[in-house]
Amino acid sequence: MNITKSVFIAMPASIILTFLYAPPAEVLGDAGRIIFYHVPLAWISVLAFVVAGFYAAVHLFSKSPRAADADMKSHVSATLGMFFAVLTTVTGSIWAKLSWGSYWNWDPRETTIMVLLLIYIAYLSLHGTLKDGEKRGRICASYLLIAAATVPFFVFIVPRLYPTLHPDPILNREASVHMDFRMRITLICTIASFTLLYLYLFGLRFRIAVLEKVRMGIER
């Protein structure tokens, strides 16, 4: 059995943990539980963009026959990354309303996620515009590689350079998580479940892409 299918058990278990096991946040109360969705979504969107960049590099530089599908895998991962980045922005925006009184504040972190979204929207447009073939694979892989190189800059560097209202990130300067023990356990569980969800969706979407390719080959 494919291990990623355990997401069907892990996800509801995590949902129950977030509402019944984790205590309410100190200031935001129950509304603070949004952290258990916002942080894992942000984590998997970064993971998806990094994976997309990795497969783009494999497609460009590897001559191994096993790298034949790398182009499709990078596209699948970039699409999923985009999907989760939109959800991260939505949940972050709601959190901003709860904490700062407004859905959008042009905080450095909000601005960088917006730029990142625009970069990947441009990628999807590029991929949709070009005709299927080796040339499209190489152009899109080059674009994705450059886009992936900007991800650490926009996610980890820029928000730390400017003063921000954003709460202390999980990966902070003191390298310690300022969180109640039960909240920390719940967060680890939700991150693991969302990672499984990403892997499951990645597999599913890749299999669909392979079927599409086979169908197009038959039609030609």
Binding site: P24, V27, G29, D30, A31, I94, L98, G101
Partner: peptide, 28 residues
């Protein structure tokens, strides 16, 4: 989460002291 947070206004609150939601913070 959003409807519960509708505290009116919508103007930007610069200070982090805007954490004034009268929420339940005790155990369930």
């Amino acid at each position: 989460f959003g409807l519960a947070a509708d505290v009116g206004g919508g103007e930007r609150t610069v200070a982090a002291a805007a954490h004034t939601q009268p929420e339940r913070t005790q155990e369930i």
